[in-house]
Design a protein around this nucleic acid. Sequence first.
DNA 1: CGTGCGGTCCGT
DNA 2: ACGGACCGCACG
Length: 618
Amino acid sequence: MKIRIKPSTGEQLFVYVDVNRTEMVENARKAVASAYEEASGKSTSIDQFSLIYQGKQLADGMRLFDYGVKHGDTFLLHLRAPIEMPASTPDNSTLEAGDSSSGSVASVSLSESPSGETVANDGAENESEEPVKCDHCDNGPTSHCNYCGCYYCGMKDDEHHTLACDECGRFYHMRCLPEPLTTVPEGDWYCEFCKTDLSNAVIGEQKLDLTNSRKSKMPSAKQKKAWGGGMACAGTTKTCTIVPKDHAGSIPGVHVGQSWKYRIHVSESGIHRPPVGGIAGSSTKPAVSIVLAGGYPEDVDKGDEFVYTGSGGYDLSGNKRQAKVQTFDQELTRQNRSLAMACAAPVNDQKGAVAKDWRASSPIRVCRSYKAAKMHPEYAPTEGVRYDGLYRIVKYWKEKGVSGFCVWRYLFRRDDPEPAPWTEEGKKHIEELGLTLYNPDTTCDGRTGLAKGSPSKSSLKRKADDDDDSAASKARRFQPGPELQELIRLDKENSRLWANMSESEYATESGYLEALAEGHLGCPICQELVQKPVTTPCGHNICNPCLCKSMDQYGVICPICRSDIASMGSIADLKLQMNQNLVTILKALIPSYGKEWMTPPKITETQYGLRSGAAVKK
DNA sequence: CGTGCGGTCCGT
DNA sequence: ACGGACCGCACG
């Protein structure tokens, strides 16, 4: 997996390092040191810095997965000697006495200053009788806690003044900061993890006076989010792992009519993964999803059928989003070719092709963006991006576009059991399922797309079953049905997992699946949903191939908790194991599960010519 | 509206 | 590995 390293000095130098999730911290630091040296030209010794992940210093002797490190995570490279594993640093122990003021730090934390100003803790007069409960420690005055104490050293004293970050609310001793402060900054202050715009930051002792600047009078001055806090540059915080990224067809748990305000969340849902770009596909694989966003004048939309335009032909040099006119011919390469491959006919990059049987074309998930309303308001949503179901390509051809250059055009036809969102039936469907726009800017229940406090009609039906008060906030729940429960009972090896799952509440099926895939059934090695799962006696699930790799390197131990798993048999035995009960459950939850490695039926598969030699060469 | 600042995946 | 392509988002 790849992790991102950001120097705490504030310099705009990001280093990416490839490490194994099971790697020891000291080895990871070694890798970071050499990568950083190479990138910056400065020499770095691994004794001179530590790595900070979500506010915690990574301790030598631990492994990265002990901290829940995931692919793509960002680490702060902090120029201070690392801590050892078990004991606290001598530095910390000498400060142990600061308990009298400890509660005050916590009280500062939650005493919300309405103006959003920085709160400097200066001795705490209020609320000392009612210390706020910390979720991470026992509130003990002498215990270290990186959540209610200083995020760096964990101490709760205020000898060195504590600052609260105006973005994330975490606490920092002024002297523990990568750039230590000696005076309390005025106005908003953002910590290293939150400041991305130097105009919001306080550097050294110099604070930027923005009160009289031109900027302060512009509308953007009222913008509460720091730059980077919005969606213009948001990265994915999670990836859909319940199906592979080249999966064609619907995404389990996501229904026609679901919409998202931002493309990045469409990407996270698995519906359409590219954060920018209308076609998900590459030159060697059939396309699996597209977005209609009205970017091309040739597009024609009639709802159940539409003509989509390939990408390219526009000169986007010079930081353009979309050039005014097309200035060269589109080619049947990249995404355009992937669409051609999705059509049930051999690829022809000269004349295009017509599917012999359009229903044999591979299914493509289609989304419409509010931007498409410009041209075809009757079928586009008014806000965000909406999933409209599966379509198949009937034919594709090349023709002269409005600017005189060639464009590739694709005729799509709808083929989905769920009704289209613009139909009466579709609207009813959306209403019944309680689908709402997922918008992180407003209150919303997680990533499920279900807005809080918007009980759907059907929640009333269920109200009688609700034995507790807040029926509205628990508008709907998902738990597997009786047949599945029967299968779950058979998976005795994972009884603890399934007990956990049934104790928790999930608003939607996709929430349930996500919890499953991100939780116990996310393989710690490959980060995907477990494939050919092996369940250890310690209750962990790992892909068979990943376990094999791990055993070759680390021996017969569980890659997650490192406990001895020799009781399951020899390495050779283990390499053959698979929890078949779990496979059956997952197959029931996710129809496409395991199709890559499940032994295929003895029937000859239909060949659509998609990958036949004729389609490729020539 | 132009454009700065982004992300991810692909193809080299 | 790295730069280019791409039907984004937000600011000024």
